[in-house]
Design a protein around this nucleic acid. Sequence first.
DNA 1: TCGCAGAACCGGGTTACCTCA
DNA 2: CATGAGGTAACCCGGTTCTGC
Length: 288
Amino acid sequence: MGLDDTCNTCLVLGLGFSSTPGNPPKPKDQTSMQPPAVMAAPALSFEPFLTLGLSVESYRVNVTEKVDVNKGGYLLHRRRHHEEPPTSAAAGYVYRQASPDPSGVSSFSSGRVKRERELLSSEEVEVEKNSCRVSDEDEDGVSARKKLRLTKEQSALLEESFKQHSTLNPNQKQALARELNLKPRQVEVWFQNRRARTKLKQTEVDCEFLKRCCETLTNENRRLQKELQELKSLKMAAQPFYANRPAATLAMCPSCERTGGDGNPKNPFSIPSKPRFYNHVTNPSAAC
DNA sequence: TCGCAGAACCGGGTTACCTCA
DNA sequence: CATGAGGTAACCCGGTTCTGC
């Protein structure tokens, strides 16, 4: 092993996702977004490479399954799982709830679903009749988009509901609409937009985190390049003097400038026969 | 007047259910 | 009777439009 071989001392810097402090524990039935974090460098490797990168696949997957950074969990997978609430099972209520289905393929299998929806839709019409806050048409019948301004009370209730369920089942939507004197469609839209805002916020947080990781790794790369350069210049300077010695027996610690050798403890230039690796973060010198 | 937040809308994808050959 | 295809409804998402402040 020569100095060039010492350059083969690996540096592996990985960037991936791991849990971030402060993230709420993921609910049992939800997958969670794991914010990115620098992975610990592997202890041993013999290939010379410095990696700065993301696991694209894991990022993609995780980004689509994240937990609201400040409002609790939310679901991005389409889920059509439902279950009967304990109190209303006999009445045949249908719930849409988060599904643990990891494939993202959802299930919404109940023979009662459609009937339930039909019942609800008729109810929805009634609610919409009663809802006077927003109208799709003006008095003269001309379609005009009017923007709803939610009151503080309405917003608070919607937020509260979102904290509990980031998605609504038809019953919840109806109940919420009734309570807020809004159209079920408006409640639905609010939840859709709310989920989108949550995701956007999470994406921004992730982006910032990755930027910081990138900076850190860039600096580390620069430092190691410099160290490598120093090693090379030391090798060049030492070559005339130790011309008869195999290059593999030469090594010098750039930090303490001690020179290693062939592993013989009596030889001041000996290096261990086996390469010693170290955590460059906690121990910047391999030779020491 | 401009920018922003967010409500509303649109198109596309997925799933469940129903009907019919 | 079982089954597969086609149609429909409902939901969600990403993206966009547009309104009110």
